[in-house]
Design a protein around this nucleic acid. Structure first.
Length: 883
RNA sequence: GGGCGUAUGGCUCAGUUGGUUAGAGCGCUGCCUUCACACGGCAGAGGUCACAGGUUCGAAUCCUGUUACGCCCACCA
């Protein structure tokens, strides 16, 4: 499914756009501007293949990134812009370090969000029983109610999914290109489509063959709206109002009533036991005896289990099959019978349960049959009131209830057959192995590893991967049917890998005929699809062409970096580690980088309302891509960051400053290439620059792009405010001093531009094009060594005061004097006397002409003092010239 | 209940091995239409570094405890 290499042959660089100044380089604009940079350079990068992955490089020369495939079921928001920019800065840094950067984009167009979006967009719903319609056209307007949506075949439904996601993906790609992500668009993958299906099915079959995947009929959490089982990782607690109902159970030994408190009185009919803590003296005498349930009069045992909490409710609880996950634990560990009443639709079954053996009980059940939990509860409370077994009034409480994270109704627990992948939830040994994988992984920021450990240590079951949905990767299995048409789930029919991908609903297993499907003695296809995470957990394998493109795989796997959001450590990150652990006995990547969230100005997680108002394309239009990237990159790794257009304005100002400062530096004319840097001020500046390069490099190596940006920016402003002003007078002149300044300026500019390039790709490329060949994004990341060698003693290693620092300090005093006198900074100064320590005066002496020129000072005297006090700078302004 | 993170001027944040007087930008005030830049520039005001102890010659930084906010996790009758 890899796309063909992207468009080529689009228009190249537009020449002759700029008129140069008299002394300027030929490409230097009169009035530099940010306008139009995105369109122009975007086209050039595409035409030149600037970000194309070079797959001739060996693994050691490659930096490969497991890009998060955004869910193509709506729109990208500011949060995406934020985190994808972070990754892009790293990608650009690595590319400039000489790595061949493998940076594909993926689209997650597989799963429930897509299904839901397609249903609502077209007004259709999938019904596997409906036949395929060639050339099906969805309704003009979706029906108002979901029930009235057009019922269509699975194949028609999938076609609509593909149609809608295709157009969504184009919109996404445009935004990413505009933002300047340095993605190789020829390597794009999607999570639906034959290649991904094949990889996903292959990985599953290998899990199955090694015993890592298994199926089991068991109580599982069930979403009644989506009608599918869900996994532990997809749960979300929501606080919901409820009420404690005190119910009377009757001792069969004639000892009176036992009172239990429950929030789900409607489940009395499925009660299989009462339970109290083994040490609870109040109930110890009852263990081993039986009681009868209210209303239904069913006899159930009283049992002991340590999970029962004496101080909760009355200290004794009813166990139902199943009210919550604790019920499942008790049911399993106490070996209790199953009396399930709630079906997959979330309603109480119509059939009267066989364990009800009185007419009264059966009549009572008739009043709750067919009802959903809420309606059943109302009826049940009525029944309990009538029988006098509801003691007092229900006491309202608020309590956490488990929801499917995308669902809006509480989960029920329904017994179904499901597929699982072992993930350590039931094996201490496997759990430890996976914890060890977490320890081997580089986490950025490091503290995020706790979330992984927390999650793995808290697992209480294996990973449920089957979903009773339509759009997704099918479980690639069939089952033999016996003479009664009962499937043999223990010995599935497995397709050969060469046949993948298969759809067991359409394809026929070897040795069977199509008309044997669903016939006694024949076969049946597994009806389920895999959970979206079961496929997403394979993004490293999908992106790198596992078993599809062995050459690519060898050059890119295991990957270097997985960028992702921190709230999906338990799902995406963990499941990816599990799959690679099984398949490759390795980590899928060496590093995980976690991005924070975008917060409202009031520090809450960006709300839907705000998120919908702030449209990324508008931001890019309004502020420019570089400015938006600047804002994004100033958010530290893993840290939640406030949405702040103010930061974007600063980014824009920075970009403009880069244009203008560059124009100045380059407009001085090109010095002889071998002209030496001789002046102390220039050498000191280059020495400081070397330190900056080291710092930025160190920060990037630690994935701390924000720090690299912050340091570079800090240097750059001082460079402009102080160095540029100090050097200006000399640089305008001629001779060795001017040549030194011009060489140093060009060197500094080239270095600073490259340090900024990962953050501000457009403006840096623009300036680069004024005086250098090729793309800055293919240029070499600056090295401090040559700068430091050039700077020599001026590196400041000996602890002597830097002449740049002293000069800037004195210049600042002169500026303040002018500011206090409320005169122009250009106002002439007759005399400046600097009184300072010997070493600082010595530093100043080396640059005294530059300082005098920058401050328009006629005479600059220095006085050495051995005092400890601060430097004294006396400024005598020239009298204002008479007009 | 367990874990993690954050707390620095009105706002957004730097402050990496503890080291002089805690920095920057925004906003605010004043000045400057200076030949790179008015989509500017220069200068200024503004902080008991959440709180309480402790270690140290020295703490925003290290330790202990507390508080607030946020997040992750948890069997939630």
């Amino acid at each position: 499914m890899y796309r063909e290499p992207g468009r080529t042959g689009s228009e190249g660089r537009k020449g002759g756009r700029y008129r140069g100044g008299p002394m300027a380089s030929p490409n230097l604009p009169d009035k530099p501007s940010l306008d139009g940079l995105e369109d122009r350079w975007g086209a050039v990068w595409e035409a030149d293949g600037t970000y194309r992955f070079d797959r001739t490089k060996e693994r050691s020369e490659v930096f490969s990134i497991d890009t998060p495939p955004p869910t193509v079921s709506g729109s990208l928001h500011v949060g995406h812009v934020f985190s994808y920019t972070h990754t892009d800065t790293i990608a650009r840094y690595q590319r400039m370090q000489g790595k061949s950067v493998f940076y594909p984009m993926g689209w997650d167009d597989n799963g429930l969000p897509t299904e839901r979006r397609v249903e609502n967009y077209y007004g259709v719903r999938c019904d596997p029983a409906v036949k395929y319609v060639e050339g099906y056209a969805p309704p003009e307007k979706p029906a108002k109610k979901r029930q009235d949506y057009d019922a269509i075949s699975r194949r028609n439904f999938i076609e609509l999914c593909e149609e809608l996601t295709e157009s969504d993906e184009q919109v996404f790609e445009q935004l990413w290109r505009h933002l300047g992500l340095s993605i190789d668009w020829s390597m794009t993958y999607s999570t639906v489509g034959p290649t991904t299906q094949r990889i996903s099915q292959r990985a599953f079959l290998r899990n199955l063959a090694r015993g890592e995947a298994y199926s089991q009929e068991a109580p599982s959490l069930w979403d009644v709206t989506f009608q599918t089982a869900v996994a532990q990782a997809e749960l979300e607690d929501k606080d919901r109002p409820g009420a404690y109902h005190d119910l009377a159970f009757h001792r069969t030994d004639g000892g009176g009533d036992i009172v239990i408190s429950t929030t789900r009185p409607e489940l009395v009919v499925s009660c299989v036991a009462l339970v109290a803590h083994p040490d609870d003296e109040r109930y110890q005498p009852l263990f081993g005896t039986t009681v009868t349930t209210p209303v239904f009069g069913v006899e159930v045992p009283v049992r002991a289990h340590p999970l029962a909490e004496p101080d909760k409710g009355t200290g004794i609880a009813m166990i139902c099959t199943f009210g919550d996950t604790t019920d499942v634990t008790w049911w399993r560990e106490l070996d209790l019978p199953t009396r399930a009443v709630i079906g997959k639709d979330g309603r109480f079954g119509f059939a009267t349960p066989e364990w009800l053996d009185t007419d009264g009980a059966r009549e009572a059940y008739g009043r709750i049959a067919g009802k959903a939990a809420g309606g059943a509860q109302i009826q049940m409370v009525e029944l309990l009131r009538e029988s006098g077994e509801l003691l007092g009034e229900p006491k309202p409480i608020t309590h956490p209830v488990k929801f499917y994270e995308k669902g809006d109704k509480p989960l029920e627990i329904v017994t179904t057959r499901q597929w699982y992948i072992r993930n350590g939830g039931r094996s201490a040994e496997l759990r430890e192995a996976l914890l060890e994988r977490g320890r081997q992984l580089g986490w950025h920021p490091d503290y995020m590893r706790h979330r992984y450990e927390n999650w793995v240590e808290g697992l209480n079951g294996d990973w449920l991967i089957s979903r009773q949905r339509f759009f997704g990767v099918p479980i690639p299995l069939w089952y033999r049917l016996d003479a009664d048409g009962v499937p043999d789930h223990d010995d599935p029919i497995v397709p050969p890998e060469a046949d993948l991908p298969i759809d067991p609903q359409a394809d026929v297993p070897a040795g069977f005929l199509a008309d044997e499907r669903d016939q006694p003695g024949g076969f049946t296809g597994d009806p389920d699809v895999m959970d979206t995470w079961a496929t997403s957990s394979l993004t490293p394998q999908i992106a790198t062409g596992w078993e599809e493109d062995p050459d690519l795989f060898a050059r890119t796997f295991p990957m270097d970096m997985r960028p992702q959001a921190h709230e999906i450590i338990r799902t995406w990150l963990f499941s990816t580690v599990v799959r690679a652990h099984y398949e490759h006995d390795a980590l899928p990547w060496a590093n995980a980088t976690l991005s924070g969230w975008i917060l409202d100005p009031d520090r809450k997680k960006m709300s839907k309302s705000v998120g919908n108002v702030v449209v990324p394309t508008d931001l890019l239009e309004q502020h420019g891509a570089d400015a938006v990237r600047y804002w994004a990159a100033s958010g530290r790794p893993g840290t939640d960051t406030a949405f702040d257009p103010g930061q974007m304005k600063i980014g824009r100002r920075l970009s403009i400053k880069i244009l203008n400062a560059s124009k100045f530096a380059l407009g001085l004319g090109e010095p002889a290439p071998d002209a030496p840097v001789t002046e102390a001020l220039d050498l000191a500046m280059l020495g400081e620059l070397a330190g900056l390069v080291d710092e930025a490099t160190r920060a990037f190596e630690a994935f701390d792009y924000a720090r690299a940006l912050q340091r570079t920016e800090e240097f750059f402003w001082r460079f402009c405010d102080d160095y540029l002003e100090l050097v200006k007078g000399r640089a305008y002149g001629d001779g060795a001093g001017a040549a030194s300044a011009r060489i140093a300026l060009r060197l500094a500019l080239s270095t600073i531009l490259r340090l900024f390039a990962p953050f501000l790709p457009y403006v840096t490329e623009e300036v680069w094009s004024w005086h250098q060949g090729g793309s800055i994004h293919r240029a070499t990341w600056p090295a401090s060594g040559s700068l430091r060698a050039l700077a020599g003693d001026a590196s400041g290693a000996d602890g002597a005061p830097s002449c740049l620092v002293v000069a800037a300090d004195v210049l600042g005093r002169i500026r303040k004097a002018k500011s206090d006198a409320k005169v122009s900074q250009r106002a002439a100064v007759d005399l400046v006397t600097v009184t300072d320590t010997a070493d600082r005066i010595a530093a100043l002496a080396a640059v005294i002409d530059d300082v005098a020129a920058a401050g328009t000072v006629a005479t600059l005297d220095t006085v050495v003092t051995d005092g400890e006090g601060e430097a004294i700078v006396d400024v005598v302004l020239a009298p204002p010239a008479e007009a």
